[in-house]
Amino acid sequence: MLQVENLIAGYGKVQVLQSISLNVAKGQLVTLIGSNGAGKTTTLRAISGMITPESGTIMLGGDNIAGLSTHQITRRGMAHSPEGRRVFPTLTVADNLELGAFPRLTGARPRGEVKADIERMIALFPRLGERRQQLAGTLSGGEQQMLAMARALMLQPEVLLLDEPSMGLAPRLVEEVFSTIARLKREKITMLLVEQFAAAALDVADYGYVLENGRISVHGPAAELKASPAVRAAYLGAAH
């Protein structure tokens, strides 16, 4: 579904990604782990067009989307729940969800049942239901994270990019976020998950890539990566 090949990207003269290749098959949950500054967020930003890649190809369902602008990539079915949540603070929870379906409401993607989907999102994240008419800026960090994920799902995406959905959340909420991700996986939503909690991410994922200084150092089925001594030592906090 999503194939990235030899992706080189960065900010201005600073090249962050040296040459990244990765593959997310339809219905799969793939995770990208690595230490801070390895280039995880940059990878997602390059895929969704928030930064323009220097070179490389990004194939989404057979089309190369590298070089397109963000809104064009979104309209092709790439949803991105970005780092820092980035909900629209002066709009209500309901309006934020509706905007997630903007391409569907404006004819750029099949419309489907937007209202019913909002209800489904509220069933998935009941807390958002209680806050429906509240401004998104007044939500707690955990609620904003749920809203950001729900908003991205409102696109009915081909691929969902999740950037650090657990960041800054209390342990109980981290668990909740991961159980939601597991549920989305059961619903066969294609996902690329960037996480700081490598162990939890590998537990839920089908396949994993380890990013080190802008390069993929190891990749393999999630269970194998979790068992690998090198990965355990570097990212899973295991004692030698």
Binding site: M50, H71, E98
Partner: peptide
């Protein structure tokens, strides 16, 4: 209107509005 909300979203956060498929 959804287009008006797109305007407010762009005012709030231009990058995030782009991620919604809005041509900012």
């Amino acid at each position: 209107s959804i287009y008006g909300k797109a305007v407010v979203a762009t005012s709030n956060d231009r990058d995030a509005a782009g991620l919604m498929g809005i041509n900012t």
